[in-house]
Structure formats: structure tokens, C-alpha cells
């Protein structure tokens, strides 16, 4: 979507918001956020402060999509996974998940499920057409001998109700795949997750 379209949509959002009293986040400009209005008279899209506000948001993850979910007890604690997106292109597949759980003040669960690694490399996206379970890329050291880490997020050290985004970069899906099963260690697989192609 071009910025022109975005800003036009933003304007439409303002018009809609005016007619309601919802507290839900809306793409409306504000005196404090100042995004598109505060400096418009000087022909800039944003002030420095307004741009920062637009990127930094309100400190929550409430604006993220939900295309699937799973929950269950893992190692004695409740864990909820909100699948935000499965985005595919010729280069590969990106999985985005928000993990939530009770903040017990102790390190997060999955210490057994995740094995010896501290990252989320145990996630899988199942490409039924190709017959493969896609897993995150890993990175070797310069010698090509030792595992240096994963092209995926570190597992959250502590979970909480506010959630933490974890991501994983995986191999390409079969072209045209419209939905996949997402498997998260310790939780039931989530079938029918819509794929967004770009």
C-alpha cells in the first residue's frame, strides 16, 4: 500500500472515530502524538516527536492480527500463543507469534520442550503440498562447523500477560499455498492458518 493510500485511510479513520466514543486504538492524530497534523502547516508529514509516537505506539501489542491461536499447560504453567501472521514470498516464510503466560516471576516455560537451545527453533510450518515441515533457518560460525544461533527469536526469558512477539524465518512454502498448520512445541498444532503472500 502506498503512503498516499495509507494517509487517505488515516483521514477516513478520523471521520469514523468522530462518530463514536470507543476507547479502542484508532489511527487518529492527536495533540500529543501529533503524527500528521501538528506540523502539517509546515508541509511535513510528521514532527520528530509525532513520528516517534507513531512507531513506538502505546506500549501494547493490542494492534496485532490474530489468525490462529493455541493454549495449554506447559511444564506446570499456562501458555497462550496468538499467531499474528504467516507471510510467504519467494525468499521464504515468516512466522510471527505473540506468547503470553502468567508472570510467575520465574523464567519462562518450555525449558524442556525447547531442548538445549534458547530460541524458538522448535516451531514448524507444515507445507502439506510439498510434504515438508518447514523449520527455522540456523546460522553457522565462520568455519561452518558450529551452530551460532537461529534466524528466529530468542525464547522469552519471562512470559507475561502483555505478551512478547517471537518470529521465525523459514524456507519457502509451495507457491499458492493458502493455509498451513503451525506447530508450536508443547501445544496442539494449529491447522488452517491463513497465509499472506507478498
Amino acid at each position: 500500500m502506498s503512503r498516499t493510500t495509507v494517509v487517505a485511510a488515516l483521514a477516513a479513520g478520523v471521520l469514523l472515530v468522530a462518530g463514536c466514543s470507543s476507547d479502542e486504538p484508532a489511527p487518529a492524530p492527536s495533540s500529543s502524538g501529533g503524527a500528521a497534523t501538528a506540523d502539517a502547516g509546515q508541509d511535513h508529514d510528521y514532527t520528530v516527536e509525532g513520528f516517534a509516537s507513531s512507531v513506538l505506539g502505546d506500549g501494547t501489542l493490542d494492534d496485532l492480527e490474530d489468525v490462529g491461536s493455541a493454549s495449554g499447560e506447559i511444564e506446570g504453567g499456562q501458555v497462550e500463543a496468538q499467531i499474528v501472521s504467516v507471510v510467504a514470498d519467494a525468499a521464504g516464510t515468516e512466522l510471527v507469534v505473540v506468547l503470553r503466560g502468567d508472570d510467575t516471576g520465574s523464567p519462562s516455560r518450555w525449558s524442556e520442550s525447547r531442548g538445549v537451545f534458547t530460541d524458538v527453533r522448535g516451531v514448524e510450518v507444515v507445507d502439506e503440498a510439498a510434504g515438508w515441515r518447514l523449520q527455522p533457518y540456523t546460522i553457522l560460525d565462520v568455519s561452518g562447523e558450529s551452530d551460532l544461533g537461529c534466524a528466529c527469536s530468542e525464547f522469552p526469558y519471562r512470559l507475561g500477560e502483555d505478551g512478547t512477539v517471537v518470529q521465525a524465518l523459514l524456507p519457502p512454502l509451495t507457491e499458492g499455498t493458502t493455509s498451513v498448520t503451525v506447530a508450536l512445541p508443547g501445544l496442539e498444532p494449529v491447522p488452517g492458518v491463513a497465509v499472506t503472500w507478498r
Binding site: 468522530a18 486504538p25 492527536s30 503524527a35 500528521a36 497534523t37
Partner: peptide, 27 residues
Amino acid sequence: LAAAALTLPTAPAHAAAAPEPGSTVDV
């Protein structure tokens, strides 16, 4: 957008959405 906002004093004070990926904005 500016004109719309100025005529709508009851709009809640939320920050604008972040620019879409792939866009360039004037800050």
C-alpha cells in the same frame, strides 16, 4: 487529514499508525 482532524475535536488522543512498510515519509 489535517483539515479533517481540526474539525473533529472529540477524536481520542491516540498516536497515528506507523507508516506502512515500503513507504517514505517526511519527518
